[in-house]
Amino acid sequence: MINVQDIRDTARDLLAKGEVRAVIGWRAGSRGMAAEPCVVTKPEEADSLVWDPTCYHNLALQLVNDRKDLVHSKKTATAPIGIVAKGCDARAIVVLLQEHYFKREDVYIIGVSCENSGVLDERKVKAQVGGFAPSAAAFDGDNFSVKTAKGDKKLAGREVMADRCLECRTPFPKENNTAFGDDKTGREFDAQFAALARFEANDEAARWEFWQRQFDRCIRCFACRSVCPMCFCDECVVDSIEMKIAPETTAEEKANRIRWIERSAVRSENATYHMTRALHLAGRCVDCGECERVCPVNIPLRLLNTKMEREAREAFGFDPGASIGGPSLVASFRDDDPGEFIR
C-alpha cells in the first residue's frame, strides 16, 4: 500500500528545490467522495495531494493542457512539470512522447502503482450502497472502504472496481522518474477484451440494433473527446472553425465549406463522430476508460476503442503505450499485414 505522505513529500521536495515548476495531481473534491485533478505550484500546497480509489482522471490530459497553454501564451517552461501518474496515465504519457507532443525531460513522472486495486466505478458503488453516495473512499488491500451517511462500509474490489481496471494488465507506471507501490504488471482479474468478445457474439442485426440506440442517445457534449489526453487536436474534425469569413466570401464558398459532421445530434452525425474518433484513437488509445466514465448518457465507448486495440494487437502486433521509441500504428506497416480482404 502506498503512503500518500510519500507522494506529498516528493512533490514538496521537487517544488522546493525548483526541480519542477508545478506538480499535477489529485486533491479532495468538494462534492461527495470523488477526488479532482489539481495543479500544485507551491511546496506548502503539496499536502493537499491525495491518492485514493477516486483518482479516476487520466492526468496526462493536464500535461496536454499545460503544453497548449505554453504554446498559446508563447512562453517557455522554466523547469519540467511534475505529474502523479497511475499505470494508465503513464501509458498515455508514453504515447504523447511517441508522438513528440513534448520531450521526456519536460516531464517528471511520480509513478503510483494501483497494485492489486484500481479506481472505483461510481455507478457500481451506488448500486452497492443503496443510493447513499459515499463521502469518502480509500484503498483497503484488494478491497475498498467507503464512508457513507450510514457509517463505514467495506466493498469487495472485484464488485465495484471500474471495468477498465478489472481488465488492466499494467497497473504499474513503467515509465517514471520515481515510483511508489509494488509492480503488479501481468495481474489478471478479468480476461482482457472479455466484454468485447461477449458483444461480438451478437449477429450483425443485433450489433446494429445496439449501436444505433447508443448513437441516437448521444447528446454531443463531447465530454469523451474533452477528457481524452489523445484528443489533443487544436481543431477537431467536428468543429470546423477554421474557415475565415471575409466580406467577399460568397454564399457558395460558405455552403461548400467542408463540414464532415454537422452539429445536429442525430444518428448519422453521431455515428460518424464516434466512429471517426475510434479510428483516430486506433493504436493510440491506452484504455484508461475515461471517455466511458464521463459519458452522461452511458454510451459504452470502451467497446469501440478496445475493438480497435485488439485489432491492432492481433492483426499488426501493435501495443499502444508500450514504448516511446516505436512507430505509430497507422504510420507504419509490415510486409505481412493481412490483405486477404482486398480483391
Binding site: 489539481c38 495543479v39 493536464q62 457534449c221 465530454a223 473527446r225 464521463v294
Partner: peptide
C-alpha cells in the same frame, strides 16, 4: 477552472 476539460455536460444537462 484549472481541472475543467471544456466539455458540454454542465450546459446540456
Amino acid at each position: 477552472a484549472k481541472p475543467c476539460i471544456g466539455c458540454g455536460i454542465c450546459t446540456f444537462l
